[in-house]
């Protein structure tokens, strides 16, 4: 039993890294070099949120940090800045998950919105503190909106296809 659980947890951790790598790959594709216009949703943040709320052991903080740091380096962000935002977002979500073990999806959306806001506020404060160049506020707001729009999709894929569900068997689907 312990062995089975162990194997499951680690294979999901590997899957998490794989998905993060896939997201990095998509971000790196040299397709749209001209249009800086529309911000893309931060799918890694969605993934972190969906998994942390359901199975925090599948996406532990250190694993999030590893994925975040590699992405920071690859996407030429100040290394560590967005990682910190991801970690703090994950931590807020984890606390909320402990308080309310089985929220409805509407409540979950509110929790995620709060976490996304925390991530962007932390990131911005940090960038202001070190005096690094930062994106315009409007673009950030649009990115937050897109991220929240993308979240239900990521959550559905996580639950139905990847079968990342709350361990509690009473809650049906585990949504």
């Amino acid at each position: 039993m312990i062995d089975g659980g162990f194997l499951q947890v680690w294979s999901y951790r590997a899957l998490f890294l794989l998905l993060a790598g896939g997201l990095a790959l998509v971000a790196l594709l040299p397709i749209n070099t001209a249009e800086p216009g529309i911000p893309r949703p931060d799918l890694l943040l969605c993934l972190v949120a969906a998994w942390t709320l359901r199975r925090p052991d599948f996406a532990p903080l250190w694993l999030i940090a590893v994925a975040g740091l590699v992405l920071d380096f690859l996407l030429f962000r100040p290394p560590g800045s967005w990682t910190l935002a991801l970690i703090l977002a994950a931590e807020t979500l984890n606390r909320q998950a402990q308080r309310d073990a089985d929220p409805t999806f509407a409540v979950e959306m509110v929790q995620v919105a709060a976490a996304v806001a925390v991530a962007h506020v932390v990131n911005r404060v940090l960038l202001v503190l070190v005096g690094a160049p930062r994106p315009s506020a409007g673009a950030v707001v649009i990115e937050i909106l897109f991220t929240l729009l993308a979240y239900p999709l990521v959550a559905v894929v996580s639950v139905l296809i990847l079968r990342v569900r709350r361990p509690d068997p009473q809650s049906g689907f585990g949504f």
Binding site: I31, P36, P39, L74, R77
Partner: peptide
């Protein structure tokens, strides 16, 4: 690769 984010 396109290593730009929205802002870089």
């Amino acid at each position: 690769a396109d290593s730009g984010t929205t802002f870089r």
